[in-house]
């Protein structure tokens, strides 16, 4: 009896989630239609809905508040002017992420001031037979909160994020901070899904290595 009830609850929750997703999609479609009609109110509505997320994505990639601010200005002007070019092949929010990532990466390319570090030092190493080179691998997952405050960990991660290659940084921000799927990240960055996975994995390994070293363990 309990199993049947649990199953029914699960179905109801799934149905509610699906309904919420449909409503959200319809709201996006309405918003896009209004933008295409040149509604300034729609632009402000879009700004209120998405500016926080997009600003933080731009800021993470660029590390500079005024650069991020300019990117957001450009993104919303472009969204208003080129709303007609939005085909609806992806979600409107994914299209906005794409405009943001392109604008931010373009800025970095032009400025050429990005400082990257070599990943190799912080990636795991393996013996020829495929086993871990440094054994035993220490499980420090429970030590992180004990040895460092949340703020200290966040500061270290933020610094380490800044050492990633710009595209890798964009991928990890969209994935692990914004929660986009690999497909959506591929749409937003112009990479293949396979390339997204590869870059995401490498970036995570690098961040893991940085945390391990900070805690006094081997990155390997």
């Amino acid at each position: 009896m309990q199993t049947v009830e649990l199953e029914m609850n699960r179905h109801q929750a799934t149905a509610a989630r699906a309904k919420k997703a449909r409503n959200k999609m319809q709201q996006e479609l309405d918003l896009v239609a209004e933008l295409k009609a040149g509604s300034q109110a729609a632009l402000e509505k879009a700004f209120n809905l998405y500016s926080g997320k997009l600003y933080n994505v731009a800021l993470r990639i660029l590390k500079d508040q005024s650069d991020a601010e300019e990117v957001i200005q450009d993104v919303f002007m472009t969204a208003f002017r080129k709303a007609d070019s939005f085909q609806g092949n992806s979600q409107f929010s994914t299209w906005l992420y794409r405009l943001t990532v392109n604008a931010a990466l373009g800025r970095i390319r032009r400025s050429k001031k990005n400082q990257e570090v070599e990943y190799a030092e912080f990636l795991p190493k393996f013996q020829d037979n495929g086993h871990h080179a440094a054994r035993p691998v220490i499980d420090w997952s429970d030590n992180l909160d004990e040895q460092h405050s949340k703020t200290e960990t966040q500061e270290l991660l933020a610094k380490s994020l800044d050492q990633l290659k710009p595209v890798d940084k964009a991928v990890i921000v969209l994935s692990d901070l914004e929660g986009l799927s690999d497909r959506e990240i591929a749409d937003a960055t112009g990479l293949t899904v396979s390339a997204v996975k590869t870059r995401l994995h490498r970036a995570r390994l690098f961040l893991r290595g940085k945390l391990a070293v900070q805690l006094g363990y081997s990155a390997a």
């Binding site: 926080g52 933080n56 993470r60 420090w140 997952s141 992180l144 949340k150 960990t153 966040q154 991660l157 933020a158 994020l161 990890i172 692990d176 901070l177 914004e178 995570r204 961040l207 893991r208 945390l211």
Partner: peptide, 11 residues
């Protein structure tokens, strides 16, 4: 743990 900690940077 790394993925979880990274997610806390979201704003």
């Amino acid at each position: 743990t790394t993925v979880k900690a990274t997610a806390t940077l979201r704003s």
